[in-house]
Write a protein that binds this DNA or RNA. Structure first.
Lengths: 206, 206
DNA sequence: GTCTATAGGGGGATAGAC
DNA sequence: GTCTATCCCCCTATAGAC
C-alpha cells in the first residue's frame, strides 16, 4: 500500500531542488527562481512553505552538515574495530560519499565561513569526536609508543586532508595533471586503498 | 625622488580593495559598493576605471591565481636542490603564503569552479609542472626503486592536501579540536617541519 | 578624474484570485 | 495549496556637472 516512491510532497520537492542548487552555486549565487524551476513549482510556493530564502538555506545547511558528520559517528565509536580498521572505513565511506556528491565539501567549507550564525555550536560535533573510542584508541597507541605523532588533531587533519582535498581541487589538479574525468575518478578510487597505508606510514615510530 | 610609498594611484587603491573584498566574500556576495567604501572612493570611479564588476573580478582572479603558481615555479625548477629539499621549500613557502592570506585557498578553489571562462588555460600551469625538474627527479627516484608510489600526481595531491586543506577547514577543525586561533596557528607552523617528514614516510619503499 | 544623481534591471517577497 | 501578477528594494551601471 505505502508506495514510498510516490509520496513526494511539494515541500520535499522544494527542499530537494534547493539542496541541489545551493550545493552547486552556494548561497549568494543562488536565485530562488532557480530553485523553483528545478522543483517544477511556482516561485510563490517557495515562500509559502519556507518564508524566505535564508530560512530555506539554514534548513538545508543544517541537514547537510548533520549528514556529513552522522556518517562518521558510528565508525568512530565502534568498540569492536581497531584503529586501522576505523581509518579504512572512514576513508572508504567518505570517498564514496563525496563521489556521490562532489560539490559537498567545497559547499560546506565555504558557506560555513560566513552564512552560519552558530551552526557548528548547534551540532554535538565536539563531544562526539573528543569522547570517541577512536580518540581513546589513538591516545592509547601513543602511550604504548606505537605512534610517533602525539597530537590526535594533527592525525585527524591529515586523514581528512588526504580524503577531501582532491575533490575540492579537482579542476586545478585535472589541469595540472592532464587527466580527464574518468582518469580522475580512477585515481580517487585508488586512494581508498592507498590513504590507509599512507597515514599508517606517516605516524609509525621508527 | 621616486618615493614608492606615495604613488598609490586610484586604480591601485581600487584593485587592492577589490582583492580584499573578493577574497573575503567571493564574487556573488561582493557588492561594488563595499569595494568603493573599502577603497575610500566613489562608486562611479570603479566603473570609470574597470567598466564592470565582472571585468574587475577577472583581473583580480587572474592575478591571484598567477601569484599562487608563480611562487612555486622557481622551486620546482631548481637544478641544485634535491627532491627532499624541494618538498621542504614548497611546504614552508605555502604555509607562510597562506598564513598571510588565509582566505586565498577557499576563494581560489570555489571561484575557479564557475566564475572562470578559460582562466586555467590562459596560464601555463600544465607545462610548468609537467616539464619541471621536480617531476624528473620524482620519476628518477621511482625508477631507482626509492619511491613506492609511481604516480607523481598522487604525490603532488598528497603534498598540497596536507599543506592547504587545514586552512580551508579551519572553522570546522577548531570546533572539533577545541583550539583557539593562537593554538591553531601554532599547529600550522608545526606542520612546516612535520609535512616533509610525513610525505617522505608515505612514499618510501619498505 | 572625481563627484552627485539617477536610470535600469534583477531578485526576494507578497497580494489576491482560484 | 497553487497559481499570476506585481511590489519594491537593492545593486550595477551611466549621465552629466564640476
Amino acid at each position: 500500500m505505502d508506495n514510498k516512491k510516490v509520496d513526494v510532497t511539494t515541500e520535499e520537492k522544494i527542499k530537494e531542488a534547493a539542496r541541489t542548487i545551493f550545493h552547486r552555486k552556494g548561497y549568494a549565487a543562488t536565485r530562488t527562481r532557480d530553485i523553483a524551476e528545478e522543483a517544477n513549482i511556482n516561485l510563490a510556493l517557495l515562500n509559502y512553505y519556507f518564508r524566505s530564502k535564508k530560512k530555506l538555506f539554514d534548513i538545508i545547511m543544517l541537514e547537510t552538515v548533520s549528514e556529513f558528520f552522522q556518517s562518521m559517528i558510528p565508525v568512530l565509536n565502534d568498540e569492536n574495530s581497531s584503529l586501522d580498521q576505523k581509518v579504512k572505513l572512514i576513508t572508504s565511506n567518505y570517498i564514496g560519499f563525496i563521489t556521490e556528491g562532489p560539490n559537498l565539501p567545497i559547499f560546506m567549507l565555504s558557506e560555513i565561513r560566513y552564512n552560519v550564525d552558530g551552526l557548528l555550536e548547534k551540532l554535538p560535533i565536539k563531544p562526539l569526536v573528543m569522547n570517541s573510542i577512536f580518540l581513546k584508541q589513538y591516545q592509547e597507541a601513543v602511550t604504548k609508543g606505537k605512534i610517533a605523532e602525539p597530537n590526535p588533531l594533527q592525525f585527524l587533519i591529515n586523514l581528512l586532508s588526504l580524503i577531501i582535498f582532491p575533490f575540492i581541487a579537482k579542476p586545478l589538479l585535472q589541469e595540472v595533471g592532464e587527466v580527464d574525468d574518468t582518469q580522475f575518478d580512477t585515481m580517487m578510487q585508488e586512494r581508498r586503498e592507498l590513504i590507509p597505508v599512507w597515514v599508517k606510514a606517516m605516524i609509525r615510530t621508527e
